[in-house]
Amino acid sequence: MKAILQRVSEARVDIDGTTIGQIGPGLLILVCAMQGDAEGNAEALATRIPKLRVFRDEAGRMNRSLLDTGGAALVVSQFTLAADTSRGNRPGFSAAAPPEIGEHLYRHFVETLTAQGVEVQTGRFGADMAVHLVNDGPVTIPIER
């Protein structure tokens, strides 16, 4: 699985003008299941992310985790993280898991992240979403498992 973590002071997801997920300080997590991924990949990613020290401590250094800060996570499925841009001008997405597998792994990722003690809000798998965020830092980190 691939993910992009964005440290945010706030973020929300809207569908057709209605907010379906919203957080204050924490992480916006864009996540994509790849061909060949299984539940173990989702669990490994969801277990690692809350422990990453990407939040400022009292000295202003990135030394605190999501668990340390009590921040929340807004998890949004994003199959475009599987984009292959190596040829031509149109990205290919064949490296992404098929939708039914992708949705299962997305939900498993969310469940595992929640089980780590993180407050989790979500987008809607496969929906056309408007994602609003205030990137704090900015801090944007790619991660794979």
Rank of each mutant, 00 (worst) to 15 (best):
I15E: 14
G70R: 03
Q22K: 10
R56E: 11
G26I: 04
L133V: 03
A96G: 13
T140Q: 09
N89G: 13
R53C: 04
S9C: 13
V120S: 03
C32Q: 02
P99W: 03
E144Y: 07
D16S: 15
E39N: 13
S77T: 03
L28D: 10
M62A: 13
H132N: 12
A96E: 11
C32T: 01
A38I: 14
G71W: 00
I4N: 15
Y106N: 11
G21C: 00
M1Q: 10
Y106F: 11
R124N: 10
A130H: 15
Q78T: 07
E144C: 11
F55E: 07
V120D: 01
R61W: 01
Q6L: 14
G26M: 07
E119W: 00
S65M: 03
D14E: 15
E144P: 07
G71I: 01
K2P: 13
P138H: 08
L81R: 06
P99H: 08
G70W: 02
R7M: 08
I101H: 14
L81V: 03
D37H: 05
L52Y: 02
G123A: 02
V13R: 14
E103H: 03
D128L: 07
D37E: 03
E58S: 05
L105Q: 04
Q35N: 09
S65I: 01
A46W: 06
A130Y: 03
L66S: 09
L45I: 06
S94I: 00
H104S: 08
A82F: 01
H132W: 06
A46K: 04
A11K: 10
A96H: 13
A3Y: 06
A73V: 00
E144F: 06
A73Q: 00
Q35W: 06
I15M: 15
V31L: 02
P98T: 14
R107Y: 06
V75Q: 09
R87Y: 10
R53L: 02
R90S: 12
G88D: 14
G70M: 08
T140I: 06
R90P: 10
N41H: 13
V139D: 05
Q6G: 14
E39A: 14
I101R: 15
R87K: 15
N89A: 14
D68K: 06
A97K: 11
A72V: 02
G26R: 05
F93D: 02
A97L: 09
A115L: 08
Q22L: 04
F55W: 02
G123T: 00
L5E: 08
D57F: 01
P91C: 01
M129N: 10
I23V: 03
A44C: 07
D16K: 15
S86K: 13
I29D: 14
L133Q: 10
T18V: 14
G60C: 04
N41P: 11
P99F: 02
P50M: 05
R12F: 10
V76K: 12
P98W: 10
R87Q: 13
G102D: 04
A82S: 08
Q6A: 14
P98Q: 15
E39H: 12
N41D: 14
L133I: 03
L113E: 03
N63R: 02
A96L: 08
T112S: 08
D16H: 15
G88W: 07
A46I: 00
R90K: 13
Q121M: 00
V134G: 15
Q116C: 13
L105T: 05
L52R: 07
T19L: 04
